[in-house]
């Protein structure tokens, strides 16, 4: 392991180490996604004062064993050795130590309905402004500082493993350097601007005969897209959708007859559209989008991985939080252009070569692979 400062041997942290402590209690806080260090300090102090005030002087202490490894942090009852808490290390947001107190801040899962409400009511709401639940566990120990340092070291060792798993050699860059690179990447926000402009959102009424299909092909918008909903990939000549003259290939469908399609699997969306067969009027809410997505990746140096992989011109994986995700890269999209050059007929090796040798600003145009196959006649449209 590359120079991970801390009181432990990194190998010991993989197996796990144990500290004795007293558990003082837990409390819950609401927090934005990535609060500043000052806000975190206030959160830690707030957690300590809440826990200390709960029971006052009559506070009962539970003697615990704190198990720390690069995988998880467990709290065991010192007497019975029963597991009281078990948190995956990656869900620990941060730790704080104040004198003989240690505060462990763990993220809680957001209720599914809350996350969906958020998407539906405020498309493109800044991620940082959303509130997330945080559970704060407070401990007391003479070794508080040592415990905090050991957890900090476990964070670093686990993060190095994560970087290696994503093809980044930690020896090539310090942790700070990598997070600096990430922070210099602006979120490519053309999508956000586009979705938040009400002129691009339309409500349409389509007329059709009873028993007639709508005459469309839909595809997924692709993992990594701002709004996970289906895209209109093709229209049947003379079908109700094409006849209306109100739809274009690339449009993202938000809802049909007041049923939201946002976040639903493709098959469910197809089922909803098939279910319209006996209707004579269909109401649709769409966002007009060009069929081609624009991507901008800023890569200051060849030593930084792009953070996505390509197979036969199609993006097949994306590193969460990497520079490519920030640039607008989406899984399942076919690369159409790189820096103004068409790569539609380019061999896979040449595309990989072009990407791996690109530094500075990398501009790409992409499109859902299924849409590309339909537009180029490689696939026969199955209209629904």
């Amino acid at each position: 392991f590359v120079d991970v400062p801390g009181p432990c041997e990194p190998e010991d942290l993989i197996d796990g180490i144990i500290f004795a402590a007293n558990y003082l209690g837990s409390t819950q806080l609401l927090s934005e996604r990535n609060p500043s260090k000052n806000i975190r300090m206030m959160q830690a102090q707030e957690a300590v004062s809440r826990v200390k005030n709960t029971d006052g002087d009559a506070q009962t202490l539970t003697e615990v064993d704190l198990f720390i490894s690069t995988q998880r942090i467990k709290v065991l009852n010192a007497d019975s050795q029963e597991t009281m808490m078990d948190n995956a290390l990656r869900t620990i947001s941060y730790i704080a130590d104040i004198g003989n107190i240690v505060v462990l801040m763990a993220r809680r899962r957001m209720p599914r309905t809350a996350s969906q409400d958020c998407i539906e009511t405020t498309p493109g709401a800044p991620e940082a402004k959303k509130q997330y639940k945080m559970i704060c566990h407070v401990f007391e120990s003479e070794d508080a500082q040592l415990i905090a340092q050991s957890i900090g070291q476990a964070f670093s060792v686990a993060y190095q493993e994560f970087l290696r798993a994503n093809g980044i050699n930690p020896e090539d860059l310090s942790q700070k350097e990598y997070s600096d690179i990430i922070n210099t990447q602006e979120m490519y926000n053309d999508d956000l601007i586009h979705f938040s402009n009400s002129e691009n959102c339309k409500e349409l009424q389509l007329e059709k005969s009873k028993g007639e299909i709508l005459g469309v092909v839909i595809v997924e918008s692709g993992w990594g897209s701002i709004l996970p909903t289906v895209i209109l990939a093709n229209m049947m000549n003379g079908g109700p959708a094409a006849r209306s003259g109100k739809l274009s290939i690339g449009d993202q469908i938000m809802s049909i007859n007041n049923t939201s399609l946002v976040g639903l699997p493709l098959a469910t969306c197809q089922g909803i559209i098939k279910g319209l067969k006996n209707q004579v009027q269909v109401k649709m809410n769409i966002v007009s989008c060009p069929p081609v997505t624009t991507v901008l990746i800023k890569r200051p140096d060849l030593k930084y991985q792009l953070g996505f992989s390509v197979q036969n011109g199609i993006i097949c994986s994306l590193m969460r939080g990497g520079i490519a995700e920030r640039g607008g890269v989406r899984v399942g999209h076919r690369i159409i252009e790189i820096n103004g050059q068409s790569v539609v007929a380019t061999a896979h090796e040449k595309i990989v070569q072009a990407l791996s040798n690109s530094v500075g600003e990398i501009h790409m145009k992409t499109m859902p692979a299924a849409m590309f196959r339909l537009l180029t006649g490689q696939e026969t449209p199955m209209y629904i």
Binding site: R40, I92, I95, R109, Y132
Partner: peptide, 21 residues
């Protein structure tokens, strides 16, 4: 006494929805 904060570098790669209960 001084308050020290150590942030988990994995935090920025982690989806809040994926966090455990």
């Amino acid at each position: 006494s001084a308050l020290t904060i150590t942030i988990n570098p994995m935090e920025k790669h982690e989806q809040p929805q994926a966090a455990e209960e």
